[in-house]
Write a protein that binds this DNA or RNA. Structure first.
Lengths: 154, 154
DNA sequence: GCAATTAGCACAAATTAGATGCGCTTTGAG
DNA sequence: CTCAAAGCGCATCTAATTTGTGCTAATTGC
């Protein structure tokens, strides 16, 4: 389906929360108290974001995660590529098929090239959507004034 | 994942082939001989496209499918919406969650609004990608000169 | 040094979406 | 009447995604 994974959603929510907490270390537990998200998956998501340099982790008491860069330098593209890999609109672009030598030996696939262009533009959109723009425009209510709110029915 | 389904790919390939055959009725069998695609799924895809007025079906001997509109009026958007439903980038936009009253009661979801804008633009891209533009630009080789070629390893 | 907190990691399992096969029915052409 | 082809329902089958539980390692605060 043409849909972001839950991991990506969780990642974005976590990043927004970290932005709210402005530089402090935020634990997975805290994020899952703020939003009703499964702890395990959020932990894994943040680990992957840390590996990709989007956030920094700090172990031990008082530790957690914090943004590794400015919210203007963190984009939806970074999050998606860290959590889902680069988008492959068609199955013949996916890593699995590529490594099997499935499709790139077929130079005359009629839909390949135009689909690639669509994907390129989609990718540009993701890369130009910064973390700051996420909070700047939405119905987002900063932490200290907001009651707990959740994006999902758990 | 941010990826089109195989159904959508099959649909586009089938449409391209129908365009090649210029107005004649094309059977599912013929399409599956041209491209190595599973008959059952292609049949279902074309049925759905017919329901949505993208193609027209003709039963009986000599029947099959043909384009219901000009290749300039058929877009990737039509195909995706017929075969996958309108794209819902986040899970809280998906039909399942909506009908459960899951998320739209949460007016302060921090990421909802900007994600919607991304989705709108993605949707516009799909709507502006016409069937004709698919064949006009790719490495597509018209039917009568092409050897059989396939987009996938089966 | 010790206890509490917190990330990291591994095994597995539950859930969901997606894709496909088979056989039968209906329709239409020759 | 016979054959080709769409339409339909049922049953899987597969693959990706998501999640739970419990244990390990790293820090911090006392």
């Amino acid at each position: 389906m043409l849909q972001l994974t839950k991991r990506t959603e969780y990642g974005m929510l976590a990043l927004v929360h970290m932005l709210d907490r402005d530089g402090e270390y935020v634990s997975v537990r805290e994020i899952c108290e703020r939003y009703p998200l499964p702890k395990r998956t959020v932990a894994e998501v943040l680990k992957d974001l840390a590996r990709n340099g989007v956030v920094e982790s700090q172990r031990g008491a008082g530790g957690g995660y914090t943004l590794a860069r400015s919210p203007d330098e963190i984009t939806l593209g970074h999050v998606v590529s860290a959590l889902e890999g680069a988008p492959a609109l068609t199955s013949c672009e996916s890593a699995l098929v590529l490594k099997n030598g499935g499709c790139e030996v077929q130079p005359s696939c009629p839909i390949r090239s135009p689909i690639h262009r669509v994907r390129e533009r989609l990718w540009q959109m993701l890369e130009h959507t910064t973390l700051r723009s996420l909070v700047a425009s939405g119905g987002h209510v900063p932490l200290h004034t907001a009651a707990a709110s959740a994006p999902h029915a758990p």
